[in-house]
């Protein structure tokens, strides 16, 4: 069920998808994925991404994050530790996610994506009434 998001096959099966997009370069953003009773919470570092152009879509259980970056190069490069390239990463998401209720925020270069679970998939507490 919710295993899809941790399954190692995510890397392998979907990486090929990324490779077919070569020779373009893509950055693979770092993410945290935390699950609680009501939702999966995905946070991703997308420094320099353009808020209005961040594309998040779900197709056949695969969540794709695709974001171009705004590059302002000034002057002659002296020293580089990172390169600018669009962000791209895919995840398998479990079926229990209610795709219509997904919510995203982007602040200070951090993308927060709320993936709420469907009502039916939430754990439910059953009250036991004691017959007196």
């Amino acid at each position: 069920m919710a295993n899809g998001i941790t399954a190692q096959n995510e890397e392998r099966s979907l990486q090929t998808g990324e490779e077919t997009r070569a020779p373009e370069k893509f950055l693979r953003p770092a993410v945290n994925i935390i699950e609680d009773e009501s939702e999966l919470l995905l946070t991703a570092d997308l420094p320099g991404a353009l808020k209005d152009n961040i594309e998040i879509h779900v197709d056949q259980g695969i969540l794709t994050i695709n974001a171009p970056v705004s590059v302002q190069t000034t002057g002659r490069p002296l020293y580089r530790e990172f390169e600018w390239a669009p962000y791209y990463r895919q995840f398998q998401i479990p079926e229990v996610i209610d795709q219509g209720q997904m919510k995203a925020e982007f602040r200070n270069g951090l993308l927060t994506l709320h993936l709420p679970k469907r009502e039916a998939a939430k754990p439910r507490r059953v009250e036991i009434s004691v017959a007196s």
């Binding site: 946070t43 570092d45 420094p47 002057g75 990172f82 270069g109």
Partner: peptide, 22 residues
Amino acid sequence: LINLSEDEGQVYLEALVPGVDP
């Protein structure tokens, strides 16, 4: 992580600090 560049009169520094409150 940083990138450094320069032109005649200026030095430019870019640093990646996502998720940090300015």
